[in-house]
Design a protein around this nucleic acid. Structure first.
Lengths: 69, 69
DNA sequence: CCCTGATGTAAAACTAACTTGACATGACGA
DNA sequence: TCGTCATGTCAAGTTAGTTTTACATCAGGG
């Protein structure tokens, strides 16, 4: 699953640490997410989207697999 | 975090087992989600929303905590 | 009355999300 | 050159999502 975190974070001139603090996770978590290493929890995805004033689907990009991804 | 899973599932006359199969998880997972026992992964939330033809934010309801939820 | 299907619980086990800490690198300014 | 800030890696540990199995209840149909 891809996402626009890095792009959005840089757009807002936020550091990884800033962003982590805003959504209440560690910096490692942000790094791993930006690198697409895993699939966040829904709540975290939601908080991130809100930081950027977007909807979840506008931040996280789901390969449009019809079937089983 | 609340959600409309039960309502939507019944609207579409799906059984918990049907829904579980459609999104590729176990029936227990659906039960726990309907009862609000936890916070799904983003991917699961996305698949569920798609089954019902909705957006994630239309299925899962985030108490609108400004701050730290 | 019994059988079956749908829903629910409980507990143990596994996996994936997330944390913590230690360390490496490149860019930049003093 | 030295310090520092932002980014990154790695590895080990904790927590929470998810699975599996086994069992209980209730409703409806034969």
């Amino acid at each position: 699953m891809e996402n626009r975190l890095r792009e959005l974070r840089e757009r807002d001139s936020l550091t990884q640490e800033d962003l982590a603090a805003r959504v209440g996770v560690s910096r490692q978590t942000i790094i791993s997410l930006e690198r697409g290493r895993y699939n966040p929890s829904l709540l975290l995805a939601y908080k991130l989207a809100r930081v950027f004033g977007l909807r979840i689907e506008d931040v996280f990009i789901f390969e449009d697999g019809k079937g089983d991804e």
